[in-house]
Simulated assay, not measured.
Amino acid sequence: MTDTVHSLETSRFGSVSYDEKDAIHFAQGIPAFEEKKNWILLGEEDDPVKWLQSLDDGNLALPVSSPFYVDQGYTLDIPGEDADAIGLDRSKPDRTGVLVVITIPLDSPWEATANMVAPIVVNLDSREARQIVAIDERYSVWHPVLSAEAKAAMQGRESQA
């Protein structure tokens, strides 16, 4: 099997090359972006925040992260209907990827929040994905990304600049 490399012009990253096998497909799109079905994940391996870049619109990229960077104790119960829709094999939990969308205010990045209620679940074998709603009272759509100490440190650096 040969790999198929494509190029995409993006507003945020310039020209990006990607392998077709790395594309992530959302059959239903992502809420608010239902027409955008194909995406790639961009960013360095060790970066806690990556970018979910639309392959259908070079101007659209969403900051995302592992929910475990936000809350090390994060747990997720994926409803059967959602697992079936993307072909998850529950006997292989290591083949399931989970991302949360991050909102980063331009003027106060220390106030970044993560949507822990609607994670993106990816079947790492088929590259099929779906944003699901996980009702869990511990989390919110605006779950703080940074601890109070980290926020204070960032604000201190900002005021010194």
Rank of each mutant, 00 (worst) to 15 (best):
K37D: 00
A114N: 08
P63E: 00
I24H: 05
V117M: 14
T113Y: 04
V70G: 05
A134Q: 03
E34Q: 13
P63N: 03
Q53M: 09
G156P: 03
H25C: 08
D89M: 02
P109S: 11
D82Q: 10
L99V: 10
S11V: 13
D22H: 13
N38Q: 12
G87H: 09
V145P: 01
D94G: 06
R130S: 14
W51Q: 07
E34K: 01
E45R: 06
L76I: 15
A61Q: 06
A27Q: 12
L106G: 05
M116H: 04
A23V: 15
W39L: 04
L99S: 03
Q28W: 04
V133E: 02
L8V: 07
A150P: 06
P63V: 09
E20R: 08
M116T: 00
V117P: 00
V101R: 03
R138S: 12
G29R: 05
I102N: 01
V145M: 10
G29D: 10
S140C: 11
R130E: 13
W39A: 07
S11Y: 05
A152E: 12
A161G: 15
P144F: 10
S54I: 10
M1F: 08
K36S: 04
L55S: 00
Q160P: 01
R138W: 10
Y18S: 01
S126H: 07
L8C: 03
S108A: 15
L52F: 10
F13D: 02
L42H: 11
D56R: 08
A134P: 02
D77T: 14
V98Q: 07
V98T: 11
D136R: 07
L55Y: 08
E45I: 05
W51R: 00
I132E: 09
A150D: 13
A85Y: 06
P48K: 00
S159D: 12
K92R: 15
V121N: 01
Q160T: 12
S66F: 05
A161M: 15
K92V: 02
L8F: 07
E44I: 04
A114K: 06
F68V: 07
T2L: 13
R130G: 06
L55Q: 10
S7H: 09
L60H: 08
E149Y: 08
T75K: 13
G14W: 00
A118H: 02
M154F: 15
L124I: 04
L99P: 06
V64E: 03
P79H: 12
N38K: 02
F33E: 08
G97L: 08
V133N: 03
I132M: 04
Y18D: 02
L88V: 12
A112E: 07
D3Q: 14
P144M: 11
D84W: 06
E34S: 12
A61C: 10
Y18N: 00
W39T: 02
L106E: 12
H25T: 15
P105A: 06
D71F: 10
R138C: 00
Q131G: 11
W142V: 13
G87L: 10
T75Q: 14
V16P: 05
S126Q: 05
L146R: 02
K50I: 06
D107L: 13
